[in-house]
Design a binder for these strands. Structure first.
Lengths: 358, 358
DNA sequence: CAAGAAGCTGTAAACGTTTACCGTTGTTTG
DNA sequence: CAAACAACGGTAAACGTTTACAGCTTCTTG
């Protein structure tokens, strides 16, 4: 691994100055003869530009960081899948951070912006603390936040609308004739847990349905916990006819328990999940789910950041991505025809394996 | 965004030379008084080291690239999830490339190593072409390949053993008393397709079962195609009692079709998938699947790379990660107890949402 | 044909660090 | 008290680029 050729090596071999070499490599106007000599020398030596030196001088790294809370979370993964191609097309490399939803790690990432190893950052913080805000205000590179920030924070941000999302689901269940609609939620001290709880209550009110505490069960955002929560719920309120689950994993747990209890889905109990992950399409019965537009949020965030990087100084922008409901078998009375078509749903293809393994 | 302070700003304010500042910041022996002055100045100014300048001088970027074929593929994702923390713990940032399984993109990445924006690379190429080999031989930074490379290639590599994987599955089905074991494969012109086809044949032979062409159906590595393939198979060989599917998506398609056809799983037909993705645990019935150790391969690859980066020049290493079979309901006659436990399988937790959305 | 313009190219400085080398100061010791 | 030595800290070069500026040709034009 001998040291590679530099611009100096080329200059020497081509018999010109390093300035000329640089000009040729950057396509600046140069005499044809010089171009030829430099190109020839560069080719022979297998020259490749040193990105680090270039960054130092130009003050641009052509790198953008994405700090995701958890690689394993399909919602963040969906963002990543959209962000990556957008950045790539614009000539940026992607530096990936997984903060494991630990605030200290997020702070580290923000602080690290000062190291100038990236030109910008997209971050989806679990929750926004004062430390976040302080660093955001002083950030030495553009940042786009995926999620909500306090009113008045001068940062571009892209948010979901889980409130409308919950409403979509509840309205859907109502339109199917369900009147005992329960909420299976995650912890209330999390941002999404609290938001979904409040939205559920509102949605019921607007429909003129009574809010019944017995119909709300709090567990955690995982499958076994979701199942347990539903089991308790069934014991307490046997006549429940619909479950609004705060995410897809909870909904899968619900399906497990309903099946074990001999309740038919959707005939006896209809089930709606949230986030519309791959798992929703894969489960049996396939799961109706509210998409909060994770993919779209990722895409928009990347585009906002690119605009900033292009230089236009403008006011911080705030974009809200609307949710939408994806109806599948767990709420539609799925006949045999629909079953056959189910496998072809949007998500199934994307999760495909093309050539792994061997 | 005024230009941040540099080592010069600090030197000025502290009344010392830049050399002293650098020494203090790097913890080299320095008089206590000087340390104090420099630290104070650095703190007041909110100084952060410029990573680019540092890299230029030190010739290390503290970045490692991972070139994955497809972000959407759960197998590669599993690798990423293991690679990330290993690198992070060692102080490296992760630059993520998605090559979309396009050879030209992979070549670009290898060529890009010359830009020296990373200290090393982990790559999982779809297939290895001559162009790959040429660039690998001349690579100016350590590379670890996840997958197979031709004998004699001087590169660290980590490979799966899908042959043994297929055998594990077939043996398992045999041990359950199944004798009409079909293979539902993907295209034979892909590396995994070919390997799995051959391994299936071998496994049957070793068990003394006849190889029956009718029992082999070729489709594609996706769910709807998998379903179609199984439909044809059932029409042709109604007495089939077990399906070895070349990946989990095919297996999910198989479950769809078997259910529609009124065949009970596993009682009438047992089904095994491959890759052991999240979907296997989520489906109903949950899917037995052969894990080819994607996660483990990622971890090992990262460790091999770190060793290289630590400097020891040693012979290229080749590690083969053994596959293992994860038995779930689609082959075990699952009683009610096992059903309840199902949600707690290894994969389910990891896919959890902790705080997305809001 | 002289003078000015236009087109290239080379010199050198700069980006922000790290570090080899040398000079200064203060301490120890014969 | 002088000499030797240790401990620090400053100067300057280097990492590999880009680019402002000035100098040299060559061409155009009056």
């Amino acid at each position: 691994m001998a040291d590679g050729p530099t611009i100096n090596t080329i200059a020497e071999r081509a018999g010109v100055s390093i300035a000329s070499v640089s000009r040729v490599l950057n396509g600046l106007p140069t005499r044809q003869e010089t171009v030829r000599k430099v190109m020839a020398a560069a080719d022979e030596l297998g020259y490749v530009r040193n990105a680090v030196a270039r960054s130092l001088k130009s003050r641009r790294t052509n790198q953008v960081a994405f700090a995701m809370a958890d690689i394993g979370n399909p919602a963040y993964l969906a963002m990543l899948r959209q962000i990556q191609p957008v950045l790539k097309a614009a000539g940026y490399r992607l530096v990936l951070h997984s903060t494991d939803a630990v605030v200290a790690d997020e702070i580290d990432v923000l602080h690290g912006l000062g190291e100038r190893y990236v030109d910008g950052l997209i971050m989806s913080p679990l929750r926004v603390t004062d430390a976040h805000l302080e660093l955001l205000a002083a950030a030495r590179a553009p940042v786009v936040i995926i999620g909500s920030v306090p009113e008045g924070t001068r940062v571009d941000n892209v948010r979901a609308d889980s409130r409308t999302g919950v409403r979509l689901a509840v309205d859907h269940l109502y339109s199917l004739g369900r009147r005992r609609i329960a909420l299976v939620n995650g912890p209330l001290d999390t941002v999404p847990g609290a938001a979904r709880g409040a939205a559920y209550r509102e949605a019921l009110e607007d429909l003129g349905l009574p809010y019944d505490e017995n119909l709300v069960q709090v567990g955690d955002f995982y499958r076994p916990e979701g199942g347990r929560a539903v089991a308790e719920l069934l014991a307490r309120v046997p006549d429940v006819d619909a479950l609004m689950c705060a995410n897809d994993l909870i909904a899968l747990g619900a399906l497990d328990v309903l099946r074990a209890a001999g309740r038919r889905v959707p005939d006896d109990v209809a089930v709606v999940g949230m986030d519309d992950t791959d798992l929703a399409a894969a489960s049996w019965p396939s799961l109706s789910s509210v998409s909060l537009g994770s993919a779209e949020r990722g895409k928009v965030a990347a585009e906002l950041l690119l605009e900033r990087l292009k230089g236009g100084e403008h006011e911080p922008r705030r974009v809200t991505v609307p949710p939408h409901l994806v109806v599948r078998a767990s709420t539609a009375g799925a006949g045999p025809d629909e079953r056959a078509a189910r496998g072809g749903s949007r998500e199934a293809g994307g999760a495909g394996e093309r050539g792994a393994g061997s």
